[in-house]
């Protein structure tokens, strides 16, 4: 009887300590974000959408599909959505970079074949973009983004 009680208390202590060691983690809160990008009411495909948090947090991104729809993930591809809080939204026309990924070989190549970006370059920088969105915790955030040329 004495033996088993000692053993049990010892095991409890050990398990408790191991469990403690696994505590602690990410403090940044995330929330799901989806939406569409449209130009003159028409959906835009192949737009790279980036959410840049104005306070601490990861950058989230997604590309729009043929119906202009996007669903954000953090840029490490590990978590869905964006961090809770205010974001600057950056849009880049990835469709203008061609259909073939070139990697390093793309350094000095005109990948557009004369195509012009469908949206203004002012959307490509956090300093010039006119779009800010606030991501709220505990709900699915949906943003319909209307852009100008």
């Amino acid at each position: 009887m004495l033996i088993s009680r000692r053993f049990v208390s010892c095991a409890t202590l050990f398990i408790g300590l191991t469990a403690l060691a696994g505590c602690g983690g990410d403090k940044i809160k995330m929330a799901a974000v989806e939406g569409t990008v449209k130009l003159d009411g028409k959906p835009l495909d192949k737009i790279m959408v980036e959410f840049w948090p104005q306070s601490d947090g990861p950058r989230s991104f997604a590309e729009t599909d043929s119906s202009g729809h996007f669903k954000l993930m953090t840029d490490d591809g590990k978590r869905e959505g964006a961090s809770v809080g205010s974001h600057k939204v950056i849009l880049k026309d990835a469709g203008v970079l061609g259909d073939k990924f070139m990697g390093r070989a793309g350094e000095n190549v005109d990948m557009s074949n004369g195509k012009k970006p469908r949206i203004s370059g002012t959307y490509a920088s956090p300093e010039t973009t006119s779009i800010t969105k606030s991501v709220e915790a505990g709900k699915k955030n949906e943003f319909d983004i209307e852009v100008k040329k």
């Binding site: 790279m48 490490d76 990835a94 469709g95 970079l97 061609g98 990924f101 793309g106």
Partner: peptide
């Protein structure tokens, strides 16, 4: 920043960016 795990599934332009 590292390339996301779903990199291969993305479009060519996004991959280039």
């Amino acid at each position: 920043f590292k390339l996301p795990a779903n990199f291969a599934a993305l479009g060519a332009g996004t991959q280039q960016l």
